[in-house]
Nucleic acid binder design. Structure first.
Lengths: 109, 109
DNA sequence: CAGGATACCTTGACTATCTACACATCATTG
DNA sequence: CAATGATGTGTAGATAGTCAAGGTATCCTG
């Protein structure tokens, strides 16, 4: 596999959903935005991104529509559904729960 | 596989190393301690624990020795090596880097 | 003597991610 | 005008970490 250097496994869905929460974006823009906001720490590979998007679409958490991008090219825009919004809440809560627990252990007395 | 409900994938090594940093422990005690410190949030399954311990041993980050446990039974005690201590530092730093980056995205304006 | 806790471990399956490709369009540059 | 790099979509194969479920054995308690 090549263990994830640039990603914490299991958090990609959360990152994508969160990135789409503000406004619909195409895949390329999603990856760029995650990278930018995380200050270049998180790098989403295409081989991770597109399977993830298809997965999320199949779950009904996002929908896709072809449209014109900012640069005037055809691109697939993904939008969060209401189900997706709930899933985002669940995943956010779960992340806080787990990362908090790990931090407890890491900073253990 | 069943995606990890009780663990964030890739953090088990960190958790184990950190738990061993204070004092040597046997496998069972490691799992119990992680569970206890994380307030029952993190559950380390045995099918995850023992392969991880063998992995860490092979990497030279921990060493194993048979000894008598608190309950008077034979148990394999794992101890952190100096290499393991360095690895713990690396993994701790990496965890902070990545979890911090994720938190940036999650709390994105 | 049955049952539960302690303690070790393995096997098989699954899934997320990675690396590496393949394809296409557009803008810039030599 | 050809090459290059950025944008944009996607797939194929490999790998590793985790889980579920099992096995073995000892000790203590009722």
């Amino acid at each position: 596999m090549g263990k994830p250097n640039d990603l914490v496994q299991g958090t990609l869905d959360l990152l994508i959903l969160r990135t789409l929460a503000n406004q619909p974006k195409h895949g390329w823009a999603i990856a760029k935005r995650i990278q930018q906001i995380s200050k270049e720490v998180l790098q989403v590979q295409q081989g991770s991104l597109y399977p993830a998007l298809h997965r999320l679409e199949q779950q009904g958490w996002i929908t896709a529509k072809w449209a014109e991008s900012e640069t005037g090219r055809q691109a697939k825009f993904y939008r969060l559904t209401s189900h997706g919004r709930k899933q985002l809440e669940r995943e956010t809560a779960n992340w806080k729960r787990l990362s908090g627990a790990i931090n407890l252990v890491v900073s253990e007395a």
